Computed example of a mutant assay.
Amino acid sequence: MPLRVTFVAAARSTPLLAERFDDDRPLDLAGWEEVQRAAGDLLPLAAAELRYCSPTPRSRATGDALGYAPLVQPALRDCDMGRWRGLTLGEAMAREPDAVDAWLADPRATPHGGESLLAFISRVGGWLDTRPVDDGGGIVAVAEPSVIRAALVYALKAPPSTYWNIDVRPLCTTTVAGRSGRWNLCLSGVRPQPSRA
């Protein structure tokens, strides 16, 4: 059986429009309430053989609140945004509009002095490819939405520009299954019951 890695997006710490690069803020009250409402659906993932999280306070707090007791993985940290750390996209655009345009257009660009989008995707993909395969074992990883987007781009071997078209909401789950270099996106949901005629 293939290895299954289920990503759980960290609960929020701020309204989406106020998201900051490399945001280290803890969960806000709304985030805690979201975790409590979602706990019943997400608690079964605690049975995974291995449980990890991004090093951000909100990822750790989300994992702990769900009973996962996750192990922090430095490779699952957010993209290093250099001098834009702590800024919103709007603030970075107001200060350095040409640099932001270059960064959005070229996945190899590092106008902020940090990590390129391509390097970020490769780092997260490298983490995914080095997970231990133990006869179909399961892994859960609580991570920032940006990390999950990077993992999906890598797993699907999609162009880096696809990163900007993936929407990851707080506390959503996404599963990939496979092994190093060969991953599949797994969608799950309620299966329709056969009709009884």
Rank of each mutant, 00 (worst) to 15 (best):
G113M: 08
D22E: 06
C79D: 01
R149M: 05
R83V: 09
R169K: 11
T62P: 15
R37L: 11
E33V: 12
L104V: 14
T173H: 04
A150E: 04
A75W: 15
R108H: 15
P97D: 00
P55G: 06
D167M: 06
R123P: 15
P15L: 12
R20F: 06
L17H: 14
D28G: 04
C79R: 15
A197N: 13
V140L: 06
R123T: 11
A39M: 13
A46L: 12
D134P: 15
L89D: 00
L185G: 06
T173Y: 02
D24A: 12
P192N: 03
D135Q: 13
L50Q: 07
P15Q: 05
N165W: 15
L45V: 07
R131L: 11
P159D: 02
P192V: 11
G125E: 00
S161N: 07
G178E: 00
D78I: 11
T62R: 14
W127K: 08
P145M: 03
R182S: 00
D80V: 14
A177R: 10
W103L: 14
L187Q: 08
D167S: 05
L29T: 05
L187C: 10
L171I: 08
L156K: 14
A92C: 01
L89A: 00
S146T: 13
L43H: 12
L29Q: 04
D28E: 01
P159A: 06
A9H: 06
D106E: 04
V35L: 10
A39H: 15
G113K: 10
D135Y: 12
A75H: 13
R85E: 03
R12S: 01
F21V: 03
T14I: 14
E91M: 02
L104Y: 13
L66W: 02
L171A: 04
Q36C: 10
L87T: 00
G136Q: 12
A155E: 01
R20Q: 05
G31V: 01
Y163D: 00
D101G: 10
V5L: 13
R20P: 04
D134Y: 08
E96D: 07
A47V: 11
D134N: 10
V35R: 09
A109M: 05
V140G: 08
D64V: 00
P194C: 04
G181C: 03
L50M: 08
P160E: 00
P107N: 08
C53L: 10
A39K: 15
A109Y: 13
A9G: 10
